[in-house]
């Protein structure tokens, strides 16, 4: 199973990024191998619009089964849901801690987006 998280830096001991669309990186943790990989979301930092949609697209491409982030808007939520990816919102802490919490079953998948779409 693969777990994707939003990250500010390429370091699993640092705080995860609560933003989804405009987070600079995604970290993908593979539970089977215990390995981490980092994916650039940089092209989205300055996107004119639709950063959430494209970030969701990037997560879909990683083959992740679950995304853990701070908040997720309605458009990204639809893309992820349609692609069969579980979404956990409201998470905070270091990347390592959050993954541990998830593995202990303490983080539950959200049923819907938790924030209004930003217009762009």
């Amino acid at each position: 199973m693969k777990i994707a998280l939003t990250a500010r830096e390429k370091n699993i001991d640092t705080e995860m990024d609560p933003r989804f669309g405009r987070a600079p990186f995604f970290v993908v943790y593979d539970t089977e191998w215990g390995s981490y990989s980092f994916i650039d979301n940089e092209q989205n930092l300055n996107a004119a619009q639709g950063a959430g949609v494209q970030a969701a697209q990037n997560v879909v491409k990683t083959g992740a089964d679950v995304l853990i982030t701070g908040s997720c808007g309605p458009k990204a939520f639809r893309v992820l849901q349609t692609s069969g990816i579980d979404i956990v919102v409201g998470a905070s802490g270091s990347i390592k801690e959050v993954i541990e919490l998830y593995n202990k079953g303490e983080l539950k998948a959200a049923q819907g987006p938790d924030v209004e779409g930003h217009w762009v």
Binding site: A51, Q57, V79
Partner: peptide
């Protein structure tokens, strides 16, 4: 289609392209 769209209005999911009219 998603590559052609400069407005990030299209996402590709395993179930096909998804278009966001508001974008």
């Amino acid at each position: 289609c998603a590559k052609a769209c400069r407005f990030n209005a299209i996402a590709i999911t395993p179930k096909g392209a998804m278009i966001f009219p508001e974008l």
